[in-house]
Computed example of a mutant assay.
Amino acid sequence: MYKIIEPEVVGSLGKETELDNSVFPSHVKKLHYEFDGWLGDDILEFFPFYIVTYSLREALENNKFTGITFQEITISKSETFLELYPDRELPEFYWLKISGEAFKDDFFITQENILAISEKAYFVLQKYNINNANIEDLEG
């Protein structure tokens, strides 16, 4: 059993993102995520990228889930974020890189470009803040 998850989008690519546009889809050498807001979720999206908090990264690594790797990213707060949440601190985030094979690994991207997760991975994610993500059963 798999589920699809569409995490909250709270920002955009920052100016320090390094893209190689000579290939499609673009290859990203360095990811910079700029926050416009944040409601506290531990997994976030900015298509086609996913980022997770350090605590969720640890849980995913400890459970040895397949189809994912992690990479450091740069995060920043936009002017909007600073106006809305002048005192809010952001935790450490990591790029959740998805490389799994459909219906084989714990994490993979569907043909519709949506993140799919195994039931086992969903069980772990439920222990974290995913309140603003849309989650449905994946038919397949």
Rank of each mutant, 00 (worst) to 15 (best):
M1R: 07
M1I: 07
Y2G: 11
K3D: 05
I4W: 14
I4T: 15
I5E: 10
I5S: 06
I5G: 07
P7L: 08
P7R: 06
E8S: 12
V10Y: 00
G11D: 04
S12N: 05
S12I: 00
K15W: 03
K15S: 13
E18S: 05
L19I: 10
N21K: 14
N21L: 15
S22A: 05
V23D: 00
P25C: 06
S26T: 10
S26V: 07
S26N: 13
H27D: 08
V28T: 15
K30G: 01
K30P: 02
K30E: 10
L31R: 00
H32G: 02
H32N: 12
Y33E: 02
F35R: 02
D36R: 01
G37E: 14
W38L: 03
W38I: 01
D41W: 02
D41P: 01
D42Q: 05
D42T: 02
I43W: 01
I43P: 00
E45K: 15
F46A: 09
F47D: 06
F47V: 06
P48L: 13
P48H: 13
P48E: 09
P48Y: 12
P48T: 09
P48W: 12
F49L: 12
F49K: 10
F49C: 09
Y50H: 15
Y50P: 06
Y50E: 08
I51Q: 03
V52D: 03
T53D: 03
T53M: 05
T53E: 04
Y54V: 01
Y54S: 12
Y54C: 00
L56G: 04
E58H: 04
A59W: 07
A59T: 06
A59C: 10
L60E: 04
L60G: 04
L60I: 15
E61P: 02
E61F: 04
N62F: 08
N63I: 02
K64E: 13
F65S: 04
T66M: 08
G67D: 05
G67W: 05
I68D: 08
T69G: 11
T69E: 15
T69Q: 13
T69W: 03
T69C: 08
F70A: 06
E72F: 02
I73G: 01
T74M: 11
T74G: 03
I75Q: 04
S76R: 03
K77N: 05
S78T: 14
L82F: 01
E83G: 02
E83Q: 15
L84M: 11
P86Q: 10
P86V: 11
D87T: 12
D87R: 11
E89Q: 11
E89A: 11
E89K: 14
E89T: 07
L90C: 11
L90N: 08
P91F: 06
E92V: 14
E92T: 15
F93S: 02
Y94W: 15
Y94L: 12
W95V: 00
L96Q: 07
L96A: 06
L96F: 09
K97L: 12
I98C: 05
E101R: 14
E101C: 07
E101W: 03
D106N: 13
F107Y: 13
E112C: 03
E112H: 09
N113H: 12
I114V: 15
I114Q: 14
L115C: 08
A116N: 06
I117D: 05
S118R: 07
E119P: 00
A121K: 03
Y122M: 14
F123P: 01
F123Y: 08
V124H: 05
L125S: 05
Q126L: 13
K127A: 13
Y128T: 02
N129R: 10
